[in-house]
Write a protein that binds this DNA or RNA. Structure first.
Lengths: 185, 185
DNA sequence: AATTTATGTCAACAAGGCTGACATAAATTT
DNA sequence: AAATTTATGTCAGCCTTGTTGACATAAATT
């Protein structure tokens, strides 16, 4: 009996889980590895600035939706006020983001990027966009829509409104397919 | 000059970044939101077990590649020994994973799931697999290959070997398309 | 016999999640 | 006008999970 080696107590399963177990493991793993490398692109850049992924997300959405309020940003990021406060404070102090008191509602703080903030957002997005463009070159042109449809369907239905609100409307293939400068401003 | 209000110092940019800036923002954001919700599926389950995402990843790969060594697991997860040690210790103590001394090389510890560990891996993978299956229903059958090709191309080329080694070979569309139980063991 | 390798462990640190409580100013309701 | 609600900020403290560097041990290799 000797309870010393737990390896002897509970028996080891030596066969791998596979698709035969009714789970789409290949797709689960592809998604995992793809996202891991996708996020690794901006990581080196961020480290140079002394920022982390949390800063990245804030800078990104402030540039994509200039003037959004703190509450709106919390809703997009799905984090708590305190978590946001830390990184937002740093971004404001270092001059990447500015707050402007709301006109209609003066309790609100509208968030805007500065020139520095815009440059950073572009620099962070560039390698990710390149990676995507490269991946799409292995596909037919109309396959882009397939990938978009897939990814959009992976998002919780009640959260897809967030996507549709973004300029360029990733939630709206038809709108953006032509890539014409719309009246988004 | 009163340096009190940084909002007044650096000017706010009021126009959003769009695809016109040469960046594929729609795809970047779709990927972000899709992955966010994809990982939220197992999170509730994990919380019930008192585990985190780190435990999830370990349990997953130990079930997919039973008998892999600590060094191999570190290589797949791309984390440090110490980070792995913490969660691995917990998983072993609570009986989800067992270690067996290597036969060829007795320094190595081969990692295997227990029955508990296998059940957990399946329970965690189920909602993710369901989400994927649901997303694929909106596509034609041959579009699955398009999505797989896209995701595989998003992975760093030198890291794609990791995918190809997994049973069911997500890196090998032809092999897995038929979903036949091959001589993978 | 000496060295290298695989693993474990300890101490310490940092980022970025979380909660709960409390403060303030502005808007809204009564 | 007074009371309440809302948007935001802030403080204290906790947890997970990533990091580094140092050191120990046993087994394999040279």
């Amino acid at each position: 009996m000797m309870a010393k080696k737990p390896a002897e107590l509970a028996k080891a399963i030596r066969t791998p889980l596979t698709v035969d177990d009714g789970i789409d493991f290949p797709m689960i793993e592809l998604f995992f590895f793809a996202y891991r490398d996708f996020t690794s692109d901006p990581d080196q850049l961020l480290a140079a600035y002394g920022f982390g992924r949390a800063h990245h997300r804030v800078v990104h959405f402030v540039n994509r939706i200039p003037g959004l309020t703190v509450a709106e940003l919390l809703d997009v990021l799905k984090i708590t006020k305190q978590s946001l406060a830390r990184v937002l404070k740093q971004l404001i102090e270092t001059g990447y983001v500015v707050q402007i008191q709301g006109l209609r509602d003066r309790r609100q703080r509208e968030l805007y990027p500065t020139d520095k903030g815009r440059d950073l957002a572009l620099a962070l997005a560039a390698p990710q966009s390149r990676r995507i463009a490269n991946a799409l070159t292995r596909l037919d042109t109309q396959d882009r829509e397939t990938v978009e449809t897939f990814l959009r369907s992976m998002v919780d239905p009640d959260l897809r409104v967030q996507i549709e609100q973004l300029p360029g409307g990733a939630g709206n293939v038809q709108d953006r397919a032509i890539a014409e400068p719309e009246a988004t401003r």
